[in-house]
């Protein structure tokens, strides 16, 4: 396995993958808390149209992605302020963008490999300059999140209250979506458009079931994201199957048992003597005397 690391492309992939895993895990936590996971998936699909457009005019796909995802995130925050409204706006914009993407692909008569790697990610196509660009963008994303973290959580929990306390709730929501757009544009290089969800939401959703402390949840999400990515790259490099497949399988394979088996830590465990700590099964009266 260590022999693999000697290949430059594998080094680049591992570096880019690790950067992506960290950025998506952190962002993912806020997406989960804000109930915006659908937007994460949709922005990736929208990015696909941008990437296809860029390929058509001979530019690097990542720039097309950036233009489309950032543009779409601004339109989404303009159109939908209420959650219900917002999901409809996201869905409508996503289908429009997918339509454009299909058009761009049909107009493009070149090598289909590039479109394929946008959809499914790739472990071979990543250059040193890609790694550098991903690193810089991720640093920007993480810095932005560090600045916004507390008011963003506050606004996710109760927008009215946050607004009363002086949090610019709407502006913050828009900036957050732009940051999501940037993150997705970076992530797609490794994981591909279709399976961005696996890194963006999988680790964070699993972590949020394991702990209720925001700091710990983000830390666990990062560890899970890194583990999925490294394992995914390793398995993909020794098999003919794509890296995004392995990451998606790991993401799902860990989330499912956690979702099914880990009960949200109940009040009983936390407070054995509290009023809710009464043992189930016994009539109330007996417990009081016990």
């Amino acid at each position: 396995m260590f022999a693999l690391l000697k290949f430059g492309f594998i080094q680049n992939t591992i570096l880019a993958g690790s950067i992506v895993a960290i950025a998506t895990a952190v962002l993912g936590y806020f997406l989960v808390v804000r109930g915006l996971t659908f937007a994460g998936h949709a922005l990736a699909s929208i990015g696909f149209a941008g990437a296809a457009g860029a390929v058509l005019i001979g530019a690097a796909p990542v720039y097309g992605m950036l233009v489309f995802t950032v543009g779409a995130s601004l339109v989404i925050s303009l159109l939908g302020r209420e959650v219900r409204e917002r999901d409809i706006a996201i869905g409508v914009i996503m289908t429009f963008a997918l339509g454009l993407g299909i058009l761009f692909l049909s107009l493009y008569h070149g090598y289909a490999e590039q479109a394929y790697s946008i959809l499914f990610g790739s472990i071979v196509g990543i250059s040193r300059s890609d790694v550098l660009r991903s690193g810089l963008l991720s640093l920007g994303v993480l810095a932005a999140i560090a600045v916004m973290a507390r008011p963003l959580l506050f606004a996710s929990f109760d927008p009215d209250l946050a607004e009363a306390r002086g949090v610019p709730v709407h502006a913050l929501g828009s900036v957050f979506l732009v940051v999501v757009a940037l993150t997705i544009s970076i992530a797609v290089q490794v994981i591909g458009v279709l399976l961005v969800f696996a890194l963006l939401v999988g680790p964070a959703a699993t972590a949020a079931r394991l702990t209720y402390r925001p700091g710990r949840a983000i830390a666990i999400a990062i560890l899970l994201g890194l583990a999925y990515t490294w394992l995914g790259i390793l398995l993909a490099s020794i098999s003919p199957w794509p890296v995004s497949f392995f990451i998606a399988v790991l993401s799902f394979g860990v989330y499912l048992p956690v979702r099914l088996l880990v009960r949200p830590r109940g009040r009983r465990a936390a407070h054995p003597h509290g009023p809710a700590g009464l043992a189930p099964g016994l009539p109330l009266e007996e417990q009081r005397h016990a």
């Binding site: 560090a146 507390r150 008011p151």
Partner: peptide, 14 residues
Amino acid sequence: DLVGFGLDGHRWGI
């Protein structure tokens, strides 16, 4: 965490 928002939820940072 909820109660803490009342103290400094509006402030930037972590």
